[in-house]
């Protein structure tokens, strides 16, 4: 196979799989709590800064993972209690409040680290040969880890007792309480879990991103677009949404440039929002 083509395909897979990790957290929270957490991207951003912080302390890269989970898990706990729960059944206000939160987190990080780009060194240097193409090892590793993570989570969601209960609450919240599922606690844990997943994605992606306070904005928009395109109904929708958004962006970017990639994604999202607001796989 043509090495250039191979690299492009790998880039698409990389883009789609990492995006899917970020969206998964957002989608599970939305399904269970009915809350579109517009600060989800900021948890990715904080995860990335955790990686930066750890490297600045000369600690091993992997130490960033527990730190990010701790920081974002704690933040998620506080946010769920103070913002999400009091506004339950006021979805529009929740949207605004989490949007306010996203500004707060962004500005807070900016106040500490400034606006400039920080770079995080890749923990795994060098490249590997994939079908004759030279591909950066870390990128490849990340793609594999992302796919494994999404697949593992989907498996867990389908097979585990907790996953079953989450699906039960999403399907029929009232009945869920009646059969003894502690809905409030489950919602809180799910929210925290979603934040942690975003943080984990942030740590993993940090070496490949220009780490800066507005990094979350891109992610939340793209994630939202994924949900718009895929629909909020199913994992199939989520993955196809990530495929469309991540795929189109990386393909168009590869052939033209990043601006066109981004513009195309925006246009697709606007068309979906307008003409097919329930996405490709609507919730029944």
């Amino acid at each position: 196979m043509d090495p250039i083509l191979t690299i492009n395909i790998l880039n698409v897979v990389y883009e789609v799989s990492t995006l899917a990790v970020v969206v998964l957290g957002l989608a599970v929270v939305f399904g269970l709590l009915g809350v579109m957490n517009l600060a989800h991207g900021e948890f990715v951003m904080i995860g990335a800064y955790c990686a930066f912080f750890i490297q600045a302390q000369n600690l091993p890269f992997l130490a960033a993972i527990p730190l990010a989970l701790l920081v974002c898990g704690f933040l998620g706990l506080v946010v769920e209690r103070l913002l999400v729960r009091p506004l339950y059944a006021r979805p529009f206000d929740t949207l605004l409040a989490t949007w306010g939160l996203s500004m707060l987190l962004r500005e807070a990080v900016e106040a500490v680290y400034g606006r400039g780009f920080r770079s995080v060194a890749t923990p795994l240097t060098g490249s590997v040969d994939v079908l004759g193409a030279d591909y950066p090892s870390y990128r490849l590793l990340l793609t594999v880890v992302s796919i494994a993570l999404v697949a593992g989570l989907v498996w867990w969601f389908v097979r585990s007792a907790t996953g079953r209960r989450i699906r039960a609450v999403v399907n029929n919240r009232e009945l869920a309480g009646s059969v003894g599922i502690p809905v409030t606690a489950l919602a809180r844990n799910t929210f925290v879990f979603g934040c942690c997943l975003a943080a984990l994605a942030g740590v993993m992606l940090a070496p490949l991103l220009p780490v800066n306070p507005t990094l979350g904005l891109d992610f939340i928009l793209k994630s939202f677009f994924v949900l718009v395109v895929g629909g909020l109904g199913s994992l199939v929708g989520l993955i196809s949404g990530a495929g469309v958004i991540g795929g189109v962006e990386s393909v168009v970017s590869a052939f033209l440039d990043r601006t066109y990639g981004y513009t195309t994604v925006l246009i697709i999202a606007i068309l979906f929002l307008w003409l097919r607001p329930n996405g490709l796989f609507p919730r029944t």
Binding site: R164, A168, N171, N172, E174, L175, V179, I181
Partner: peptide
């Protein structure tokens, strides 16, 4: 809405 429509019959019975 007496049951969880998107869960299987088995899952409905074994949820808890």
């Amino acid at each position: 809405r007496p049951v969880f429509d998107n869960l299987s019959v088995r899952e409905n019975l074994t949820l808890m």
